[in-house]
Design a protein around this nucleic acid. Sequence first.
DNA 1: TTAGGGTTAG
Length: 582
Amino acid sequence: MLSMQTNGIWADAVTYSQLINCCLARNDLQHARLVHNHLFFHGYHPKTFLTNVLLNMYVKFKLLDEAEALFDQMPERNVVSWTTLLSAYTNAKLNHKAFQFLVLMLRDGVRPNMFTYSSVLRACHRLFSLRQVHCSIIKDGLDSDVFVRSALIDIYSKWGELHNALCVFNEMVTGDLVVWNSIIGGFAQNSDGDGALNFYKSMKRAGFSAHQSTLTSVLRSCTALALLEVGSQAHVHVIKFGPDLILNNALLDMYCKCGGLGDANSVFTRMVEKDVISWSTMIAGFAQNGYSREALRLFESMKVSGTRPNYITIVGVLFACSHAGLVEDGWHHFQSMKKLYGIEPGREHYGCMVDLLGRAGKLDEAVRLIHEMQCKPDAVTWRTLLGACRVHQNVHLAIYAAKQVLKLDPQDAGTYILLSNIYANSQRWEDVAEIRIAMRDKGVKKEPGSSWVEVNKQIHAFILGDNSHPQIDEINSQLNQLIHRLMGVGYIPDTNFVLQDLEGEQREDSLRYHSEKLAMVFGMISLPREKTIRIRKNLRICGDCHLFAKLVAKTEHRIIVIRDPIRYHHFQDGVCSCGDYW
DNA sequence: TTAGGGTTAG
């Protein structure tokens, strides 16, 4: 450029823009500024096009103030000028500012185009504004643009409006990979793994190959559904993409959550690049699967590696302590999190500590900690204390904790039932009746216990009281024989876990058909002995089923993994990885 | 010839 200048030749706008974009590609702010200053000192007044390029340059270098100053000085602004700054606001999550800017743009008489809309959609922080923007898009005839379409699907999904996302998707005539990814991601984010996997199949039928983000959503769905086999299949495709950090993190999480800790660890070890999410995932994975010591060892390695722990990392660390009864370690990490990493303890951290102290029988300390909390305790906090009261049979405190839970979550069926059982055990029948009336008046219904087991990449569901499984007769007959065999080696059904209104044999019957027992038997019938039986549950496993699974693992020589909403139980040779502490 | 879309941890 300098030689052009000494020859008296002025570079034209295109040359200047190429020069600026070259600086951008090299991340060279110094030379980019030099070009801008050169234009300024030589009294060259660039046309709107070149100023837009400069504006974009400042935006990309995240120098919003300078971009704004330049925008204010522009004698003429077109839709690109407005959109450049507007998308800078959305990227910086300045949603309110982005919307104000859109209003100014409209007042200036500039109509938004597909570029503007695809940016502004991400800034919709209210459903109402989203609907308004969607109407304008249709009015301007821009709803068929694939960028706008994927942004619409994405934002509707984020608002939980899957129905609307689906409508936008179904209107698509020409295919587009990112639009497919948006709808698959939408279903995955809304915990509809089945829907996401079905769309993934349709996408492949439509002739599209999976991209990194497609696979990330697929893995997320496998994680939610505990589909280890489908997830492992996706792993084969993941390898094709080489070292993709986000994708590998999703893979890691899938193996951890599906109970495949060995595979998770080998993925983790082989990862070329690891970030705080990779470390946190693996630490929580070890902790939830009952390997607390490994989780804490990994936390030490993380610190050595130089990766700074964050809020979520510490949740995993404290979870590891609470599930192994490591009171001193727990206190140490809890007290040092602020001092060492500047992280204020949040509800989840307090929750882990309440759990840790409560399980260890230090109920008074747990209550004291709840009262000292910097943030307000929520239903989960009180439910944690309630769980500890149940283990340590502290009726007085349990009633107090249960009342606190119901104040904050009046629809929590589990707590009503627990409270009612506590009253029944203390012969407080009037209180029992009162609870039942409250449940009836509030329309509280207990979610039926359900378990899912994966056999030949198919999910088989077992729901308490539902006999629709085609092999249910065979399962029931095998289950009865199994119970008989186990009773021969000392199994006594533990009826403490049953609703209070059942008596004697009836009590045992209701335990007999707990969904995880049916799922276990089905796994035994359908899978060869060397295959692990993997079960996912919607409720926490009860003590009776836990004992049952240990005995099955021992006498039938099976490995069983049961994942409940909080943690995982690996049953092998008559013991569980949780050490009976859950 | 400048501006826009999808993915990860509790």
